[in-house]
């Protein structure tokens, strides 16, 4: 199986320093926030790879780097065999056509002044190709009607708008769709409609998804392979069933325990300790050690390296 997307030691730093005058007067150093730290992963063609993590874990940043909206500070991003960092710009933009993105908020990601026909056809129109009947065909493919092409976004509900976003993403015949929390803004009954639509399209068109979400139940439903992020680092990666059956990293275990469950009536559990630390001054050693029940001295000082345990990749000194 060939990897359609390959990330190698991907890193992204953001400069979060105060303005230079403040730095001079108050003698402050430059500060950087490492949003993505040394992430390597491969997404085979036709599969669904999910990134999960809490806020600030870097999951959206990775999606945006792959989509070309944010530059990487280090490491490589290979899409369909083309290294987007070193290849010629023309080649990169060609390969980027195979990649589209769906965003979380279907209210903010559609231009309110454009008709749906123009919104959906835009990715094709900018390339000067014919868009005759394209919007109508795509609208029907995502479960809306062709007549909706003459409406404006405000005439649709949240779920319908997300369908429009999906139709727009499909317009340029992409191979890869990056979905950044595609159903977080939707109600459960609508969420199930959108998730089913995405599953159907994947089968019909052979799409590859990079699925970014904080919702474990949604991820478990959609993904083939799951990567768990904590403070920018990929702490665990495994095929879905493996991960849910046997989470190795204590952070993954904590996430699973903390997630509310439908069958856990009046469950009394010890809630997890602490919160996500400040990403500007992350703790030394393993970033999870201040909250980790298994932490020992080695965790305070040494950053754990990725280890392979069966099908799982895990970054923990003590996982076994």
């Amino acid at each position: 199986m060939t990897a359609l997307i390959r990330l190698e030691r991907l890193t992204r730093d953001f400069d979060v320093s105060k303005p230079w005058l403040n730095r001079v007067i108050e003698r402050l150093p430059r500060e950087t926030l490492r949003a993505v730290s040394d992430v390597s992963l491969e997404i085979p063609a036709g599969s669904v790879y999910a990134l999960v993590g809490e806020s600030g874990s870097g999951k959206s940043t990775i999606g945006r780097i792959v989509a070309g909206l944010v530059r990487a500070s280090g490491g490589t991003v290979e899409i369909d065999g083309v290294d987007t960092v070193s290849a010629a710009p023309a080649r990169v933009s060609e390969v980027r056509r195979e990649l589209q993105m769906i965003f979380q908020d279907p209210f903010a990601s559609l231009n309110p002044r454009w008709k749906v026909r123009r919104i959906i056809a835009e990715p094709v129109a900018v390339r000067g190709e014919s868009t005759e009947g394209l919007s109508e065909r795509l609208l029907e493919q995502v479960g809306l009607s062709a007549a909706d092409a003459n409406k404006y976004p405000h005439e649709f509900s949240g779920g319908q708008r997300q369908r429009i976003c999906i139709a727009r993403a499909l317009a340029s015949n992409p191979k890869i769709i990056i979905c950044d929390e595609p159903t977080s803004a939707l109600d459960v009954s609508v969420q199930s409609q959108v998730l089913n639509l995405m599953s159907d399209l994947r089968e019909e068109l052979g799409l590859t998804y990079l699925f970014i979400s904080h919702d474990l139940t949604v991820v478990q439903h959609m993904a083939d392979r799951i990567g768990v992020l904590y403070l920018g680092a990929l702490v665990e990666e495994a095929p879905r069933d493996r991960l849910f059956a046997e989470p190795k990293h204590p952070y993954t275990q904590m996430l699973f325990d903390a997630a509310p469950r439908m069958d856990a009536f009046g469950r009394e559990v010890e809630p997890p300790k602490g919160e996500i630390p400040d990403a500007i001054n992350p703790p030394p050693g393993c970033p999870y050690h201040p909250r980790c029940p298994m932490a020992t001295e080695v965790c305070w000082t040494e950053v754990p390296q990725t280890r392979h345990i069966g099908e799982t990749r895990v970054r923990c000194h003590h996982a076994e």
Partner: peptide, 17 residues
């Protein structure tokens, strides 16, 4: 509503809509 919530046991089965 219950059936359309993706659940732990559901796996890749289609969600009820």
């Amino acid at each position: 509503l219950m059936a359309s919530t993706p659940s732990a046991s559901g796996g890749h089965r289609r969600l009820r809509q």
